[in-house]
Structures are given as structure tokens and as C-alpha cells.
Design a protein around this nucleic acid. Sequence first.
DNA 1: ACCCAGGCGGGCG
DNA 2: CGCCCGCATGGG
Length: 286
Amino acid sequence: MNDLDVRAFSLKHTFESAQPLTFYADYNDATQSLLFPSGQKLAMIKFSGSSRQGIISAANMSRAAVVKRFGLADNMQRIYKNIRTDSFMADAIEEYYGMRVTHNDPWETVVCFILSQVNNVKRIRRITKKIIGTYGSPILDAEGNTIANRFPTAVQLIEASKQELIECGTGFRWRYLKSAAEYCTENLDLYGLYRKSYDQLKQELVAISGIGEKIADCIALLGYGKMESFPIDVWVKRTLETVYFRGRKQKIDKLHRFAAARWGSYAGYAQQYLYWHGRQMRLLNG
DNA sequence: ACCCAGGCGGGCG
DNA sequence: CGCCCGCATGGG
């Protein structure tokens, strides 16, 4: 077990806020623990303490991996200082204090957010878990029993049939999944894109059929740690319009410029707090 | 019954 | 360019 002292960290808000971990990790609120496939193992995180100050205990994961995965190296006081631009953001920080922007495997992020389009969180979770269980290599315990599955690789998903993917509940997204698996095997090395700039990275990502502006922003932020990325989904759009534009409809490009001017290189964190706070206030469609 | 969900690709003007 | 439509599926 690896123990880490952490400040400004909430396992609950980090897990729940519709990042890839939300879609496939198992979270126990009572015990503050999180189970998820990480590499070839089933990792477990346990948290104790408060969101101000606490301890993370990790099993099957190195300290460095935990720090990376949960954004623990982020300077939250500096981030909060920069995104606390108004009372709405101050409320969001207060309400979801300790929520981190996580760092996720690029391919896993591609899959999760392809599944996210015109979908709701509850259903994205069900579909993602079904796909992991169907196509992912088994993770075994000491007795050789399967206790979980790894996230399937692109190569594994190439073998999937349309019928199987439909049975997983993917709906019309099955085509995008399959073509993304093929493209990321034959035409693009996702793991060679870390050093690209935000703009260059997005350009590479939108070349994948099924990935447009919004999903590319999600992948840039959650899969590559591009903190200037500001994904605008229906919730973020509505929240921005309500809070900053007196409820008037705005074009996406204008909202991107607004966010860049207001939050700059911290826009990704601003987005995550704005998205989650705005969504929770409306309490629709779990 | 109708509307909506962390959108995108394609077609049309 | 911008706009509009269909795309599957389950929940409110």
C-alpha cells in the first residue's frame, strides 16, 4: 500500500463528475474507495480524512501513478485563485471543493467520449462497463479467478462485430467505435501525441471519424492534460448562457473565446467546475 | 406520448 | 461557410 497526504482532494466529486473514471470505476461512498482497472491490475484507492486534508491509500498502483492519475500535482490554490472569477464559480468551488481533473489513458478517453455523444451519464456507464466485460482481457486473482477485466485495446475492439456492439447498447455509435479502433491501430499512434500543442493535437483527433470539436476537447483535457481545453457540451453551453449572457443563446465559437479570455490556461478546470455545478443545479437525467 | 442526453457526419443552400 | 437532419436507446 502506498499512502499519500493530500490537500484539496475529494474522491467523491472526482469520481462522480462524468470523467472517464465515472464511466467504469466502482465507487463505494460509505468506505470512500474506488476500484478500477489500471494497467494489468485492478487498482484500489481508499481515501480518509476531509476534502481539506486527507490520506489516499493505493493498492496495485505506484505513488507516481496515483499522483498522475488524480491530478495530485496540480496546485489547487493557484487554480482556484484563477478560476474564482465570480460568485457562480466561487459557489462551484465551495460546493465541489477538491474535485480534480483526472489524467486518463488516451485510448480509453477516446472510447468513453465516443460513447458519450447524445447520451446520459447513467447509460454511458452501463455501455462502457459492458464493453469492458465483453472485450477486455481478464484480471485474475491469486487463485486464477476472474475478478475484473482490463479496458479493451483498440486491437481487441477491431474484432468486434456490429451485432455484439449493438448488444452492448452502443446504438448508432457502434460504427464510430469500430472505425476509431481501426484508425488508431493502422493510421494513428495516440501515444505519440503527448508532445503536440493543443491545436495540433485537436487536428489529429478530429481526423478520427466520430470525433468532432467537443469530444476532441474532452480527449485533449482528460487524455492529454491540455488544461487550456474547454469542452462545451449542452450543459456547459446552457450554464454559460444563463450565468454570463442573461440567458441569451450564444454561438460555440463565441463561448470558446469567452472562456479563453476569462480563464486562459486554467479553462479546463473552470469547465469541470462549471459543468458539474451547472448540471447539479438542474438535477436532470442522472 | 414527448423530450432529452458530456455530438457528429453528411447533405443542402 | 452555416444550418438542419438522422442517428439508437432508456429514463423522466
